[in-house]
Structure formats: C-alpha cells, structure tokens
C-alpha cells in the first residue's frame, strides 16, 4: 500500500486512541470509561494490523472489544458502594 496512506491511517488511529485513553482515565462516568477502553482496544487492533501482525489484530479485536468489556461491565454492576 501507499506509505503516505498508511501514515495517515496510523496518525488518525494513534491520536484518537490516545485522546480516548486520556478521556477514559478522567471521565466521571464509569460506563463511559469502560466503553472508551473498548474503543482503545479497537484502535489498537488497527495499529497491530498496520504493523503487519494480523494474528495479533484478530486476537485484540475479539478479546479487547468483546470479552474484556463484558468483564468490566459485570464488575460495574456488582461493585457495591455507599
């Protein structure tokens, strides 16, 4: 593929990933933070694919965006706070 095209995709994915990560740390609502972390995993899988690692990209997409999000949502619904 065209190197400039790859560079553009990588820049957009990396910048949006870091913005989403910073917002996931500092946002007040825990549900928003969990969904933002799922988004970070998805963009990370795009970066893995750009680094010629399709195996890792498949794994990250199915685990980071699927199972990990469900695990944190379960934790959010079970945590007891007064």
């Amino acid at each position: 593929m065209n190197p400039d095209f790859l560079l553009g995709i990588a820049s957009v994915a990396g910048v949006s990933m870091i913005i989403a990560a910073v917002r996931a740390i500092f946002v007040r609502d825990l549900l928003s933070a969990i969904i933002l972390v799922g988004f970070v995993s998805l963009t990370a899988s795009v970066l893995f694919f750009l680094m010629d690692a399709p195996d890792v990209a498949i794994t990250e997409a199915s685990i980071g965006a699927g199972i990990s999000t469900v695990i944190f949502l379960w934790g959010r619904s079970k945590v007891r706070e007064e």
């Binding site: 990588a10 990396g14 996931a24 740390i25 970070v40 990370a44 945590v79």
Partner: peptide, 28 residues
C-alpha cells in the same frame, strides 16, 4: 507514530494506575 502512540498509551495507563482511587478504574 506507532512508537509515540504506544508510549502515550503506556504513560496514560501508568498515570491512571497511580492517580485514580476507584478500584475498577485502576483495573481499567
């Protein structure tokens, strides 16, 4: 670009681990 984004993500995660107080946010 790839190196900077990985370093930025690592930095963000470390800040979150050290600065946050809620246990689930530390796990995130």
């Amino acid at each position: 670009v790839l190196l900077l984004s990985s370093m930025g993500l690592l930095l963000t995660g470390l800040v979150g681990i050290m600065a946050k107080k809620h246990l689930l946010r530390i796990a995130l």
